[in-house]
Amino acid sequence: MTLHLSWIGRRLLLGLGQTAAVVLLIFVLTEALPGDAAVALAGEQPDPERIARIREAMGLDRPAAERLLDWVTGMLHGDLGTSLVTGRPVTGYLSAGIGPTLLLAAATLALLVPVSVGLGVLAARREGGLLDRTVSALTLAVHAVPEFALGVLLATLFGLWLGWLPPTAVGADPFTRPAVLVLPVVVLLSRPVCTISRLVRAGMVEAMASPYVAQARRYGISGRRTRWAHALPNALAPATQQLARTCDWLLGGVIVVEALFVVPGLGTVLIEAVAARDLPVVQGMAVVFGLVTVLVNLAADLVARRFAPRAEVAA
């Protein structure tokens, strides 16, 4: 128990260090962006004196170290800053965009587990058979296609040519018109399903050849029960760890998919803020994404320790 608490303490300290590094890195990278909100607000033919006045009014002429200190102090009090373009609090952008993003991510995760496990189990039923080769070939091919290219292909085919689904979410509320999320969810599912299903398939093949499964068969247990009750739980360990990592990957995927299908979520807000050089919004969104990434990685470490405690103790 003491060792377990010590391990958790080390991981929490590591997470705090990662969080501090993320905050500093985000500030440095956003400072390195060409131009700023003052240039964006000045128009296509900006007057240098007007830009200087706007920059002074926004406080952009202050030293970077001073602005970093104010930003970090505000975050410690729950204040992520104020938009330079609209004057709205950054937390307002978060509350406005988090609903569609959470809905999109939740729908993806809800479908990811049954689809991945189902495909993996089906492929493992007849190792080397037609179904196994077909599933393996399809998952390998789909995994090789970038999300952006797959999204354009699906939107063109099902949205524009066939007219079965909305090609974008422009002017639609995802909560009242969930059809606009079908294509984005399919794109987000494409790579994780391929990866996790192949892990489940490999684990099932190994588990079905194990002594305990052979013993279950000798006891007259049906093949269906053997697969689902005995082999599958032992085949899910590596897939469960990959699922935790997939939650981390979804952050980047959501930004790309929301931009492609114009879903009004956090990814769209972030891209618009980058285009307007609205640094407080960019920094606030990036910090939220970074914190979620750190927390997900900590959760993934807990999952890895749960299924491989000896390796963690040795570490």
Rank of each mutant, 00 (worst) to 15 (best):
L3K: 01
G15H: 00
V23Q: 03
L24C: 09
T30H: 05
A32D: 01
P34M: 04
D36K: 04
A37S: 12
G43H: 02
E44K: 10
E44M: 04
Q45D: 12
P46Q: 04
R50V: 07
R55E: 08
P63Y: 13
P63I: 14
E66W: 14
L68I: 15
L69V: 13
D70W: 07
T73H: 12
G74A: 11
G78A: 05
G78K: 00
S83D: 06
G87Q: 05
G87C: 06
V90N: 10
Y93S: 02
A96Y: 01
L102P: 08
L103P: 04
V113M: 03
R125G: 01
E127W: 07
G129H: 07
V142Y: 03
H143Q: 12
V145R: 10
E147S: 15
F148V: 15
V152M: 09
L153F: 10
L153G: 11
G163L: 15
P166E: 14
T168Q: 09
A169L: 05
G171M: 12
A172Q: 15
D173R: 12
P174D: 09
P178A: 09
V180C: 10
L181T: 05
R191A: 14
C194R: 03
V200F: 06
V200D: 07
V200N: 08
R201T: 10
M204D: 11
A209M: 11
P211A: 14
V213M: 11
A214W: 01
A214M: 10
Q215S: 14
A216S: 15
G223F: 11
R224G: 04
T226F: 03
T226I: 13
W228T: 13
H230G: 05
L236R: 05
P238R: 09
T240G: 07
G253K: 00
V256T: 10
V257C: 01
V263I: 07
V269S: 12
V274E: 04
A275L: 14
A276T: 03
L279Q: 14
L279N: 06
V282R: 14
A286D: 07
V296Y: 00
D301M: 05
P309T: 09
V313N: 00
